[in-house]
Design a protein around this nucleic acid. Structure first.
Lengths: 213, 213
DNA sequence: TTCAGAATCAAACGCGCATTTGAAATAGGA
DNA sequence: TCCTATTTCAAATGCGCGTTTGATTCTGAA
């Protein structure tokens, strides 16, 4: 047996890192076994095949990210709108910029967006839809329950988009944007910006609809 | 010779569609040749190898998208801030939702974000940086030239993020967001929303910095 | 100590891929 | 018509991949 830890756990850990970095198709079983210092046959021995290992990786990544950075961002549910937006943005950005296991989820998601596998449907309904609903609720708090569905969706996507862009534009961070290491204070700063920018946006939209009536 | 058109042109067209859909690595030379009704050896005969065909595809996609939907979105350069934002958003969204050749560029970009190739550096400096600068200029028009660099960057990313999210979240459009066919009027509507949401955001940020001084 | 089940291992299998090859077909000017 | 350069073609080459195999080693309870 190799250095430390059970082989199965080492395989899972190596697979997490590699799948997140290169995606399902571009990661080879041999890569995973090398990184885990395990024999080439061990993936099949412990997980059946590459695909079931991938499922296991998703399960692990999802569990870690929601427990490490819950989507409410640690703010009270009955806080004011800007604070709720801040909590959401901070949670999402913390996940995105996490260099530990909590960062696996957004990185895997990024891969799925370019080359979806069967795993995506499950992720969409179990993880993404609830987050989307959460943002909806905050917007309703600002607009009141009487609120055009179309408008609600556009605002929701504006808010989510600001956060999610940091995930999907990963390779551009150093190339185009001037982003290197991101410290926790920096994340807070970004989240505060997104919260107040979005609040300003929501108010502007609200003003327009009131003028129209 | 097959039905119509020169073989080389058919290969390029087929390669565009397939690379945009599945990315460089997941597209096989055999797929391309089949789609172009050409022999398996024709890619190497006309382009040298798969990689040089990919370069050619990028060149083609870039040329088409900027000439079909120039990044100013067809608004005068000295228009007011909201109109400039509208122009930018409309251009970007038009490209993203285009089902024709103009849509190749964002789709290829999406693939590069998940699995970068050597092509990305060129694209970043030739296509993306200039667009980023353009948004910067609009923000400066709102804020005046005296404007914190940090703040400028955050606002820029907020604006770009709202637009680009529609590109990167492609597989979620039907799954999570309720988006199906997108008509030109709908694109205008979305662009108008992003413009006024962003203007509201900019004003909010501006108000905060003024209060701080 | 014995021994059955678990774990590891190197080698091999089968397949799909990009690319090469050398011949055949085609086209167009002399 | 003849001849040469271009284009097309089916087959082959060589490599990397996921998975399987059958043997070997390890482990822990009896």
């Amino acid at each position: 047996m190799a250095e430390k830890g059970k082989t199965k756990a080492r395989l899972l850990q190596a697979a997490c890192e590699l799948f997140a970095e290169k995606g399902f198709r571009d990661t080879t079983v041999a890569d995973i076994c090398d990184a885990a210092e395990a024999n080439i046959a061990s993936v099949n021995y412990y997980f059946g095949d590459k695909e079931r290992l991938y499922d296991e990786v998703w399960r692990h990544a999802f569990a870690i990210t929601v427990s490490t950075y819950p989507i409410d961002g640690g703010v009270e549910e009955d806080s004011d709108v800007e604070t709720c937006l801040f909590g959401y943005a901070r949670a999402v950005l913390s996940r995105i910029f996490s260099e530990g296991e909590a960062g696996l989820f957004p990185r895997l998601l990024n891969q799925e967006m370019a080359a979806p596998t069967l795993a995506l449907d499950k992720i969409a309904s179990e993880a993404l839809l609830p987050q989307s609903r959460q943002v909806e609720d905050v917007i309703k708090k600002q607009f009141g329950d009487r609120c055009d569905d179309h408008l609600l969706r556009l605002c929701k996507l504006s808010i989510i988009g600001q956060c999610a862009f940091y995930n999907f534009s990963r390779p551009l961070r150093e190339r185009v944007m001037g982003i290197k290491n991101v410290l926790p204070e920096e994340i807070d700063r970004m989240a505060r910006h997104i919260a107040s920018f979005s609040l300003g946006g929501l108010k502007q939209i609200q003003k327009q609809t009131e003028n129209r009536n």
